[in-house]
């Protein structure tokens, strides 16, 4: 039901992002989607990759701080207002959204990654509305 997201801590230094990507390439890990959040001192790279466990171990071996954590990925159709409808359900249930970014599955839909405070509850709410969650097997 949940996808494993690979998060990596990156200092704001030249070449660090490239070194993360280089590590994943070396291990033949495909990046399906990514989002980079930046602050004045550091960046936080969040990715959905083909093999999260392997990616995490490879990054740790190269000295990075990396972790895996569950996120929800939801399939949306390419229609105006789809995302709003979906989020309003989560809001009505009183669940706080921590972050979200687009998921490129290569299919015709417009999937999205969502991290909320209570993932189980969010998944339950979303499934009731009939939306389809992206499973790890599909990637």
């Amino acid at each position: 039901m949940f996808l494993k997201q690979l998060s990596v801590f990156i200092e704001n230094r030249e070449g660090r992002l490239e070194q993360v990507l280089d590590t994943l390439k070396e291990e033949n890990i495909n990046i399906i989607s990514l989002s980079l959040a930046d602050t004045s001192d550091f960046g936080l790279l969040r990715m959905i990759v083909s093999d999260g466990e392997k990616g995490k171990e490879a990054l740790k071996a190269r000295g990075f701080t990396a972790m895996l954590n569950p996120v929800l990925a939801v399939k949306l159709s390419h229609q105006v207002g789809q995302l709003q409808v979906l989020l309003s359900e989560i809001c009505k249930a009183g669940i706080n959204i921590e972050y979200t970014y687009a998921l490129a599955t290569g299919n015709d839909d417009a999937s999205i990654v969502i991290k909320t405070a209570d993932l189980e509850k969010a998944a339950e709410v979303l499934q009731k509305t009939g939306v389809e969650l992206v499973s790890a097997e599909e990637l």
């Binding site: 998060s7 801590f9 602050t39 991290k115």
Partner: peptide
Amino acid sequence: EVDEKFFSDKISELE
């Protein structure tokens, strides 16, 4: 140094 023990996927927690 940020080590694995307290690393988070959330900017707010790191801040």
